[in-house]
Design a protein around this nucleic acid. Structure first.
Lengths: 198, 198
DNA sequence: CAGGGAGGTTAGCGGTCGTTAACCTGAAGG
DNA sequence: CCTTCAGGTTAACGACCGCTAACCTCCCTG
């Protein structure tokens, strides 16, 4: 995997700033002029790169959903044959990395879905559903006695737990990334274990 | 406690519908005409009851925060002298009841805070902080070895877990309220216990 | 039975927002 | 050296939105 060292393209700059602004003030609370100003150009200049404001949100949400699902699939394949508990740990770790490193995206992910055009929303929902079902499968392999509906609820709840990071430590980045990650990981595992103790 | 049987006032109708709409489409995504239509009057008619759209959101958010804090204080007092674990259970139960019965409000509570005027936002934040600190105190009494910053992070994360209910079961009300509540309760307890296992 | 206030109505104003149109500019390529 | 084109610019349009103004209509009350 070529960890990119080249400068980000203008499109990428725009997406990054748009994500931050959308997460801070909501999709309808941000004007195109603000997004443009955040990357040093003026509002209408954005239309050289995107068809419209909606298209930016769509690309962000589809990108997140695909990235989450792709990462989870990769971790599932890599863990072929190992203990199901280890696979679950790997999924949790991946989700925490995402939540800690791409906080605006995680926020948008479950907050602005309904602002999408029908086709895009369907796609994002489908990707999200696949991601959830992948988790449900792993959880049930590790806790065979946990009924499927309960497992699905538990997965959603653990997502809520892991996605709570944006609420911690408002402005500056987290004080102790490793410690926070480890605490979240332990809590997620504890929550699943408690869900399985019928 | 006089469980009210009388009809809701117009103000209350408006607040309820506004909460639902704000939660569904975001504060900026809802027009006053829509809110009016939801209670059978037209947009400007709302101004007989509220100073403006901002005032509705402010009243909603202050109301939620006060209600949560008041309930938690009451539960804390009622549990004078009992085991700290039981107090924690009572707090969890209260928060779950709120999350299950007032889903739009719980959604607004951590989503639209930044749309408030400065004075209102300060007030709501202060109430939220008191609520969190009350939880932190109870958690630390039950798990004395858990350091305070970790306890605070754990409380925020458990809120994320409990507040995830709006994401479960999209349209209709939950299939099994009691079962859902019990699952959430167990998971919250498991998450706290895991956080305390250094 | 006057009258006055509570709670509506519609018309419209001023501002903002997303988007388009028309134009400009600097760098690359034949 | 001329052309082209990617990537900007400003001006402006149309739609929408929050809110006010002006008016109406019951219903209660002295």
């Amino acid at each position: 995997m070529a960890t990119r060292t080249d400068a980000p393209t203008r499109r990428e700059q725009i997406l990054k700033e748009a994500a931050r602004l959308f997460a801070e003030r909501g999709f309808h609370g941000v004007g195109v002029d603000e997004i443009g100003a955040a990357v040093g150009i003026s509002g209408p200049g954005l239309y050289r790169h995107f068809a419209g404001k909606d298209a930016m949100l769509a690309e962000l949400l589809v990108g997140i959903s695909e990235s989450l699902l792709r990462g989870a699939k990769r971790r599932l394949e890599e863990a072929e044959g190992v203990a199901p508990g280890a696979v679950l740990d790997s999924l949790i770790e991946g989700h925490i990395d995402f939540a800690l490193d791409d906080r605006p995206l995680i926020t948008l992910h479950d907050r602005e879905l309904d602002r999408l055009r029908d086709a895009d929303r369907k796609l994002v929902r489908q990707l999200q559903r696949q991601y959830v079902e992948l988790w449900v499968g792993v959880v049930r392999r590790h806790y065979p006695d946990l009924p499927e509906p309960a497992a699905r609820s538990a997965v959603h709840s653990v997502f809520g737990l892991l996605n709570s990071t944006p609420h911690l430590t408002r402005p500056g980045s987290l004080p102790d990334r490793a410690g926070t990650a480890e605490l979240l990981h332990r809590m997620a595992r504890g929550a699943f274990a408690a869900a399985a103790r019928s």
